[in-house]
Design a protein around this nucleic acid. Sequence first.
DNA 1: AGAGAATATACCTGTCAAGGAATATTCCGC
DNA 2: GCGGAATATTCCTTGACAGGTATATTCTCT
Lengths: 112, 112
Amino acid sequence: MQNTLSALAEPNRLQIIELLRRRPLAVGEIAVRLRLRQPQVSKHLRVLSDAGLVEVHPVAQQRIYSLRAEPFNELDAWLERYRRTVDERFDRLDDILREQKAKGEKDHGHSK
Amino acid sequence: MQNTLSALAEPNRLQIIELLRRRPLAVGEIAVRLRLRQPQVSKHLRVLSDAGLVEVHPVAQQRIYSLRAEPFNELDAWLERYRRTVDERFDRLDDILREQKAKGEKDHGHSK
DNA sequence: AGAGAATATACCTGTCAAGGAATATTCCGC
DNA sequence: GCGGAATATTCCTTGACAGGTATATTCTCT
């Protein structure tokens, strides 16, 4: 999760992911489309690969990179936990605010 | 989206978010629970706030931070685009691989 | 085996962001 | 207005990381 997020945090890497969403691509193709130099693309793909976001399929001297589903599913599951509690949170906020105010007054022995 | 991801990419910030998922908290509380120093917590909250991930509610000298739903919804929408294409991608991968191989052979005038 | 294409790695450099410590700011009660 | 609590901001230093360039690696074809 942490790895996934930091891998996606880099702008060029996010663009690579967006590119690969449409279809698997070779390194050179990615470099051309994003106007990046080949070495940097390879490096970014290394990071993405280590994070499990992409996988490689060699074809001759080319390496075709494609997305892997798992990390996206994990991200989805993580998000799910937030979706469930969004409503509660807003209700809760008022409670918390009141609670904090009450505590503050109590701490000072303010009886009215 | 980019901002959201890079804000979440920092480990301590992600932890702050996880904490706030349970309930809104004051800066000091966060610092204690995560064993961080107050200034760093304030700085992280600044980043999260700029990214629109959290909002502040002042209570006396305290500032109660709570999550905002919007960025999570955006993340969700972004993910949705990937969920839809996961299946296609795998089918497509084979096509691409064949396609690339065929192209390679064609480029060399290899007729059989 | 040798040439050349496609990709990966190594090394260097500069930048940016996070932590530490001190200080400024804001707010409350008296 | 003053003292003290809670938080924000500033300045400094350091480490990680991305880009640039050169070079190594891998594969194919002849």
